[in-house]
Amino acid sequence: MMEYVDVDEKLAVDKFYVDEDNAHIVLRELGPGDMMQFHTLELACPAGLYECLPDGTVRFDYAGCLECGTCRILCGTTILEKWEFPRGTFGVEYRYG
């Protein structure tokens, strides 16, 4: 079992301008054969945005993305339908960095 970390609580201190009209990362419809790929994102995403729920369904939300590109490198050609940087002005804004 993967140990759960409440990353949302940490992301809550960060400043985000979420682009409600445009998802900059889109996950494609997943089949049972895609779960291994999805699991790598569950492990690697620093923001914990890829989550496999106990009932076997998956959850992904681009709000809270730190724009690091990890998921693009791991799954950009497999289970991600789209990976772009957020449009100008949108996304995370580091005050300290």
Binding site: M2, E3, V5, V7, K10, H39, T40, E42, L43, A44, C45, P46, A47, G48, T70, I73, L74
Partner: peptide, 17 residues
């Protein structure tokens, strides 16, 4: 490193914890 991270059982946020 991503190649070894994804073979393990501990997520990046959990490593920091």
């Amino acid at each position: 490193t991503l190649s070894t991270l994804v073979e393990g059982n501990r997520s990046a946020p959990a490593m920091l914890e």
